[in-house]
């Protein structure tokens, strides 16, 4: 089941029971604040006092930290090495033999790392705690066209099927003795001829899939109803509105702070 759900991880937590739009607003706030607020350390404050406590409440602290870490660490290493060392004309901060970390480069790396952290972390926190179908249902209630929610949820769900198909093809090639190894050109020659048949065979399905949803009234005019109801505590709409205001406020504050400095 986890496979067709994308990242979602079921936990008995208060956060999981929240309305999807509340969680969307929270992660949207982190994202916007993290990307707009000036200063090297502001994103780290958001992570420590916002994201991590929320992950703890979602009973997903370790999950979030390890997943975020796996994605973010290579970036951080790259950014510290490249921008820290190769910052042209910077003030040397630490010297290790012939190379030196420049102050400006390190500051840039710290700021970038913080942004990477908050972007990846808040996205992952949202995806880990929110079922895609419920998110779409919530958005549909707010007027998102049903065709858009069809697009997003069915994409998430059919991707594993197509990946499996790609793997089958890859395995079949391997078992036929076609090496997916050797030089770049050998590998390209082994794989590229598989791409077109994979795509063509996938496209064959499109027509039948279109008929199948037409039969079930996908384009039926008039209002649609929904089988599921999403629970929402009385205070949640207020929190959502507050977060939207906070986003606007943060944006203005960031602009002012940048103009002043």
């Amino acid at each position: 089941m986890a496979e067709v759900f994308g990242l979602y991880k079921q936990r008995a937590s208060f956060i999981h029971g929240l309305h999807p739009l509340t969680k969307l607003a929270v992660s949207g706030f982190f994202l916007l604040a993290g990307l707009s607020l000036p200063g090297m350390w502001s994103t780290y404050l958001l992570v420590i006092f916002g994201l991590l406590p929320l992950a703890f409440l979602s009973r997903l602290l370790l999950e979030l930290v390890s997943r975020t870490g796996r994605i973010v660490l290579p970036f951080m290493i790259s950014v510290f090495l490249i921008q820290g060392i190769l910052w042209s004309g910077g003030t040397p901060l630490i010297e290790v033999g012939p190379i030196s970390f420049k102050q400006e480069g390190v500051q840039f790396a710290i700021a970038s790392s913080g942004r990477i952290l908050i972007v990846v972390g808040s996205f992952l926190w949202f995806a880990l705690t929110t079922r895609p179908d419920q998110l779409m249902l919530a958005l549909a209630e707010r007027g998102l066209p049903s065709s858009l929610s069809y697009l997003i949820v069915s994409s998430i769900q059919i991707v594993p099927r197509f990946q499996a198909r790609a793997n089958t093809i890859l395995d079949a090639q391997r078992s036929r003795g076609l090496e997916i190894a050797g030089s770049i050109f050998q590998r390209a020659r082994a794989v590229l001829p598989l791409v077109a048949p994979l795509i063509l065979s996938s496209l064959i399905d499109v027509e039948e899939r279109a008929l199948a949803i037409e039969v079930r009234g996908f384009n039926y005019p008039g209002p649609k109803t929904s089988y599921r109801e999403i629970a929402q505590a009385a205070w949640e709409p207020m929190l959502q509105r507050f977060l939207l205001l906070a986003m606007a406020g943060t944006l203005i504050l960031s602009i002012v702070l940048r103009l002043v400095s």
């Binding site: 067709v4 895609p132 069915s154 996908f218 039926y220 089988y227």
Partner: peptide
């Protein structure tokens, strides 16, 4: 013929999948 192509892909449980057509017709819950 093909069962996979008839699953809408927008629903995560069987009962929700079966309800898909009724939702489109606007049938009360």
């Amino acid at each position: 013929q093909n069962p996979f192509n008839q699953i809408s892909g927008t629903k995560v449980t069987v009962q929700d999948e079966i309800a898909f057509g009724l939702e489109n017709l606007g049938i009360p819950r």
